[in-house]
Amino acid sequence: MEEKILEVLEEYCEEALSYTGDNMMEEGVIDSFTVINIVSELEDVFDIEIDAKYVVAENFRNKEAIIELVRQLVEE
């Protein structure tokens, strides 16, 4: 699963793969439009619904947070 998520990130925001900080939004690595693309792609790849309540900066602070979010939603 992690590999697939990283593939999505690579497609829409390669910089996120090498980012080691804790707030990609604030640091300008990722913007709200890229988040929309990533969410849309993750939903399609994993056949999950990512509700709007999960689309917040906290869940997109780095690649680990995104992986954790998807893991939770897939396991639900």
């Binding site: 939004m25 604030e26 300008g28 913007d31 709200s32 988040v35 689309v55 917040v56 900066a57 997109f60």
Partner: peptide, 9 residues
Amino acid sequence: PHVLGVTRQ
């Protein structure tokens, strides 16, 4: 306010 907004920062 925008949930992913950065203007405050």
